[in-house]
Design a protein around this nucleic acid. Structure first.
Lengths: 154, 154
DNA sequence: CTATTTTTGATACCAAAGTATGAGCTATTT
DNA sequence: AAATAGCTCATACTTTGGTATCAAAAATAG
């Protein structure tokens, strides 16, 4: 769950992607050569031929470009999501406290949180109170805001 | 601020975009022709020439593709943002109630909201209470959650 | 100009949230 | 075995939040 693990994962995926594109492009060139020599044998003028190449490779480029951008934003999201666990540990937030935080952010009352986690209201209050100290806030609404800033909840 | 206004705006932008790309491509083709006839005059083999065309147009395509995707997501965001005003009116949320909602979401207490808006605590309570009815919630934490779902706040 | 909505405020009361303190229990680590 | 950390719960108290009801300016629409 460390940054290095995810980074190497992303690198592997990118190498695969580039390979795929490379093979695809080579295939396209081969296809063009094949068409040129086997079927039309110079029936097309050089201009037309170049036009076809330009259109085809523009299309390939558009596809690659959109893929790359989508992948980039997906990586960004992955990195954002990863920041969570680190932050939680760094702030010393315990497992139970985090569960309470999530339910607070969902808008549950202390009573509802207690029912959902099978603990008493005083216990919920203890957890939330400790949580607020660790998040350096006074109220649960602030805790929601803060936790979202720190990306420990969505 | 209506949907139609934004849609026509977006259409205009897209037409401009396509024109720009078209002119750019035409310019590239012209440049290639220019190079072909004025400088190299068949010094390059057809294969090399096609290779250059393929690489250039792939690059153009990648650029166009990424631009298109970025524009698409930007439009999506604009549409999401527009949904706000509509929803707010549909729910009958008043200007002042919305201001209170925003400050609640920022984690402010009723007292702090009152100070910021220069109104008394009872007034803040009146607004928030009416707001909760319109959002169909019981607590301010739920209101935050609900308002985010409805995209009337970020 | 009048009708209506919005905004403002008060009072009273109850519910929920938050703090402080203390304490028992259970793993885990040293 | 002892220390540590996390989870649990209780009691008491204070603060904040939320509802209900009423009412009066102020702004806006018709």
């Amino acid at each position: 769950m460390t940054g290095k693990t995810i980074n190497s994962f992303v690198k592997k995926r990118n190498i695969l992607l580039i390979l795929t594109y490379g093979v695809g492009m080579a295939g396209l060139i081969f296809l063009l050569k094949f068409i040129e020599y086997k079927y039309f044998i110079r029936d097309f003028t050089t201009e037309m031929y170049i036009g076809i190449v330009a259109i085809l490779f523009t299309a390939v480029g558009v596809w690659v470009g959109s893929k790359l951008v989508k992948r980039k934003s997906a990586e960004k999201r992955a990195i954002d999501f990863e920041a969570d666990a680190e932050q939680i540990k760094q702030l010393g937030i315990s497992r139970r406290e985090f569960e309470v935080l999530e339910l607070i952010a969902k808008g549950l009352s202390n009573k509802e949180i207690g029912e959902k986690l099978f603990i008493s209201i005083p216990t919920v209050k203890t957890h939330s109170s400790n949580l607020f100290v660790k998040l350096d806030v006074q109220r649960r609404t602030q805790a929601i805001q803060r936790a979202r800033e720190l990306k420990i909840i969505s």
